[in-house]
């Protein structure tokens, strides 16, 4: 991907982020943080590619460690967000 395309995607995605997130009510700010944190674990994609490339030992090791950390981020983030959100309920 050439630098300009990458930059375009970056800037446009930031605008999308601003548009959506400003509408999140304060009561959901903590789940928003843990949930958005979980999706920022998307680095996992890069980690998988490094860990599986099988070039030399060092990058594979870095990739392996990155897979562990990113997976904690993803799994922990989504699960804890789900746990929190399922506690929010309306007046019956």
């Amino acid at each position: 991907m050439d630098p300009i395309t990458a930059l375009t995607i970056f800037v446009l995605a930031i605008f999308v982020g601003f548009e959506i997130i400003t509408k999140v009510p304060p009561t959901l700010h903590t789940p928003l943080m843990s949930g958005s944190n979980a999706i920022s674990g998307i680095t996992l994609i890069g980690a998988l590619l490094s860990a599986g490339a099988e070039l030399t030992f060092f990058p594979t090791l870095l990739g392996f460690l990155a897979v562990i950390f990113a997976t904690i981020n993803v799994v922990g983030g989504f699960m804890v967000t789900n746990r929190m959100l399922s506690m929010f309920r309306r007046k019956e």
């Binding site: 991907m1 990458a6 970056f10 995605a13 999308v16 959506i20 920022s40």
Partner: peptide, 23 residues
Amino acid sequence: GFVLGNSILIITGSLVGASGLIL
């Protein structure tokens, strides 16, 4: 995402970056 030239990392990262900045 910029390092790897990977669009989904760029998109997702900037969504989260924007979210944290708003908070």
